[in-house]
Computed example of a mutant assay.
Amino acid sequence: MKHSENNLVGIGLYTPAEAGRLLRISPAKISRWLRGHDANGKHYDPLWQPQVDLGDEGFALGFRDLQEVRVAATFIAKGLSAQRVRQAIELAREIIKDDRPLSTARFKSDGRTVFLQVAEADGQTKLIDLFKKQFAFEAILEKSLIHLDYDEAGIPSRWWPLGRSRSVVIDPARSFGQPIEAETSVPVEALATAAEAEGSPEAAARAWDVPVRAVKRAVAFRREMDMRQAA
Score class of each variant (00 low, 15 high):
Phe63Glu: 07
Lys143Ile: 01
Pro101Arg: 00
Glu120Asn: 05
Ala82Trp: 07
Glu138Met: 01
Gln87Ile: 02
Leu13Val: 13
Trp48Pro: 03
Glu18Val: 13
Thr104Cys: 01
Gly20Cys: 08
Tyr44Phe: 15
Thr74Met: 12
Arg21Val: 05
Leu116Gln: 11
Ile11Glu: 00
Pro16Trp: 12
Leu47Asp: 13
Leu116Cys: 00
Lys29Leu: 15
Phe131Cys: 02
Asp38Ile: 15
Arg100Met: 11
His147Trp: 08
Lys108Asn: 04
Phe59Cys: 03
Arg86Asn: 07
His147Ala: 14
Asp53Gln: 07
Phe75Val: 03
Ala77Phe: 00
Leu91Phe: 07
Lys97Gly: 01
Asp99Phe: 01
Lys132Cys: 08
Thr113Leu: 07
Lys143Val: 05
Ile11Ser: 08
Asp45Phe: 03
Asp45Asn: 11
Pro46Ser: 10
Ala88His: 02
Ala139Glu: 10
Ala39His: 12
Gly55Tyr: 04
Leu130Phe: 07
Arg100Ser: 11
Asp65Gln: 06
Gly111Asn: 02
Trp33Asn: 07
Gln87Thr: 10
Ala136Glu: 11
Gly36Arg: 10
His37Asn: 15
Lys143Met: 05
Val52Arg: 00
Val52Met: 03
Ile128Thr: 11
Leu141Pro: 03
Ala72Ile: 06
Ile128Ser: 11
Ile128Trp: 07
Leu127Thr: 03
Ala121Cys: 04
Gly79Trp: 12
Gln83Ser: 09
Leu61Glu: 05
Ala28Met: 13
Ala105Ser: 13
Arg100Ala: 14
Val9Pro: 09
Phe63Trp: 09
Gln67Ile: 08
Trp33Lys: 03
Phe107Asn: 00
Ile89Asp: 14
Lys133Gly: 04
Asn6Ile: 13
Trp48Glu: 05
Glu90Asn: 10
Ile146Lys: 09
Pro16Asn: 14
Thr113Val: 14
Ile96Ser: 03
Glu18Pro: 09
Arg70Ile: 14
Asp45Ser: 14
Leu23Arg: 00
Ser144Lys: 01
Asp56Phe: 15
Gln87Trp: 13
Arg86Ala: 12
Asp129Tyr: 09
Gly58Ser: 09
Thr113Ala: 12
Gly20Pro: 10
Asp110Asn: 01
Thr125Arg: 08
Ala121Gln: 15
Gly123Ala: 06
Ile128Tyr: 04
Val52Ala: 01
Glu57Gln: 15
His147Lys: 11
Ala60Ile: 06
Pro46Val: 04
Gln124His: 14
Ile30Trp: 00
Phe75Asp: 01
Pro101His: 00
Phe59Leu: 13
Ala72Pro: 09
Asp98Trp: 10
Leu34Tyr: 05
Asp53Ser: 13
Ser26Ile: 12
Leu127Phe: 08
Leu80Asn: 02
Ile128Pro: 03
Lys78Leu: 02
Asp149Asn: 08
Gly123Glu: 05
Pro101Val: 09
Ala28Glu: 14
Ile95Tyr: 06
Val71Leu: 09
Asp149Ile: 10
Arg86Asp: 04
Tyr44Thr: 06
Phe135Ser: 07
Gly79Cys: 03
Leu13Gly: 10
